[in-house]
Lab assay of single mutants.
Amino acid sequence: NRRVIAMPSVRKWAREKGVDIRLVQGTGKNGRVLKEDIDAFLAG
């Protein structure tokens, strides 16, 4: 159960899209999950 680094707005975006943010690979600094990462995860 790893800790995910993400801005609150990104966490909210993931929740709205029904995405478990822990499954998303972050591409930002220090592995931070970005809004673009959520979109890419949804795109496959």
Rank of each mutant, 00 (worst) to 15 (best):
R2Q: 11
R2M: 10
R2D: 10
R2G: 11
R3E: 09
V4Q: 06
V4H: 05
V4R: 06
V4M: 05
I5E: 07
I5P: 06
I5Q: 08
I5A: 06
A6W: 04
M7S: 15
M7Y: 15
M7A: 15
P8R: 15
P8N: 10
P8L: 12
P8K: 15
R11Q: 06
K12L: 09
W13K: 07
W13G: 04
A14N: 01
A14M: 02
A14K: 02
R15P: 03
R15W: 14
R15S: 10
E16R: 12
E16P: 01
E16D: 12
E16C: 15
K17S: 09
K17C: 15
K17Y: 06
K17N: 15
K17A: 09
K17M: 15
G18K: 09
V19P: 00
V19Q: 01
V19H: 00
V19T: 03
V19K: 01
D20S: 05
I21H: 01
R22Y: 11
R22C: 13
L23I: 10
L23Q: 13
L23H: 10
L23A: 10
L23E: 10
V24T: 02
Q25E: 12
Q25F: 14
G26F: 02
G26Y: 02
G26K: 01
T27D: 01
T27G: 04
T27Q: 04
T27N: 05
G28N: 02
G28C: 02
G28H: 02
K29G: 08
K29S: 09
K29Q: 11
N30G: 14
N30I: 05
N30F: 14
N30M: 11
N30V: 05
R32N: 05
R32A: 12
R32G: 05
V33Y: 00
V33H: 01
V33M: 03
L34V: 08
L34G: 04
K35Q: 06
K35D: 03
K35C: 13
K35F: 08
E36T: 13
E36F: 08
E36W: 11
E36R: 15
E36Q: 14
D37E: 00
D37N: 05
D37R: 01
D37K: 02
I38D: 00
I38M: 02
I38K: 01
D39H: 06
D39F: 07
A40M: 11
F41A: 06
L42D: 05
L42M: 10
L42C: 07
L42N: 05
L42P: 04
A43I: 13
A43D: 11
A43F: 11
A43E: 12
G44R: 15
G44I: 14
G44V: 15
